[in-house]
């Protein structure tokens, strides 16, 4: 559904979308009709292509009939020459990356985040903001939160590791217990040298974007299912120019993110495999 919602962006960027599962054609037909899917949903019944690729989940045993033949969930980005340019796979069968994160991570296509949950604040020498790369969290969907530090011209901040006395830029995201927050991914910096310190370290300047993948793990049919997930985002940094530094600042942002519904038919009768 999420891919369908973003299909125009993929098409405009010259990217064809294909989805493959082990379902028979009639299941795919019903699904496509129900959710208005227009890109190809392909039936790898018997999992021949998954086996050929070597991505069938062999942790699932043949007697687990409803699950046998599922792949490790993943995505290949293919270039015009037919070669794999990027890939992204997950071990856990439930996890799906969001469509927007695939556009950005796999194809470097910027997407419109207008309308997505967004918050910003002014900091010392910078404007700090956070935007979720999705219009809401969905059970077991991995959505990146992009935290941006837009520095005033001429200023830089430091990237870990830093020598004693310098403040490394640090983003922390916290939320309810059922929120999984992965390690922030900081961009690469420029080499930087200071008189009196023997080794180089790295600085960041311009608009610095830090990606923090998050994932909501409460099933949408839980009796006390949340409709809003509050995120507390703190950004610690010290902005400096060539001569001097501002005092270190901690900017706190609060972002309420809606929880969406997972479109899903009745789950199979046998209990799910643990991985």
């Amino acid at each position: 559904m999420q891919l369908q919602q973003n299909l125009e962006t993929f098409t405009a960027a010259g990217i064809k979308v294909f989805a493959i599962s082990y379902d028979p054609v009639d299941v795919l037909a019903k699904f496509a009709e129900e959710f208005g899917i227009t890109f190809p949903l392909l039936s790898d019944e018997g999992s021949a292509v998954m086996r050929q690729y070597g991505i069938m989940n062999t942790m699932v045993r043949p007697e687990e009939t409803d699950y046998y033949g599922i792949p490790y969930p993943g995505t290949y980005a293919v270039g015009e020459d037919g070669r794999v340019t990027e890939k992204s796979f997950f071990r856990y069968y439930r996890v799906r990356p969001s469509a927007q994160s695939m556009l950005k991570d796999l194809f470097d296509v910027e997407f419109d985040t207008g309308g997505d949950p967004y918050v910003e604040a002014a900091g010392e020498g910078a404007r700090v903001s956070a935007v979720l790369a999705s219009d809401g969290l969905v059970f077991m969907q991995r959505d990146p939160l992009y935290v941006r530090i837009a520095l005033n011209p001429g200023l830089h901040i430091y990237r870990a590791p830093v020598p004693d006395g310098f403040i490394a830029t640090e983003v922390t995201v916290t939320g309810p217990d059922l929120l999984v927050v992965e390690q922030p991914v900081y961009p690469e910096g420029h080499p930087f040298r200071v008189a009196g310190i023997p080794h180089e370290f790295e600085v960041l300047d311009g608009s610095v974007e830090i990606e923090v993948p998050i994932q909501w793990t409460q099933p949408d049919n839980a009796p006390d299912s949340a409709t809003i997930v509050p995120l507390e985002i703190t950004v610690r940094y010290q902005a400096c120019d060539a001569q001097q530094c501002f005092i270190p600042r901690t900017v706190s942002l609060h972002l309420d993110v809606p929880v969406g519904r997972l479109y899903r038919a009745t789950p199979p009768s046998t209990p799910p495999p643990t991985r």
Partner: peptide, 29 residues
């Protein structure tokens, strides 16, 4: 075969464009 029961050849359908190929668990559950 796609959702309409028509055979789809990846190379032909891709037509030298970039592509996203998603493997997922099931449309049914």
């Amino acid at each position: 075969l796609d959702q309409h029961g028509a055979p789809v050849n990846f190379a032909g359908a891709r037509d030298r464009k970039r592509a996203l190929v998603v493997f997922h668990r099931s449309a049914r559950w």
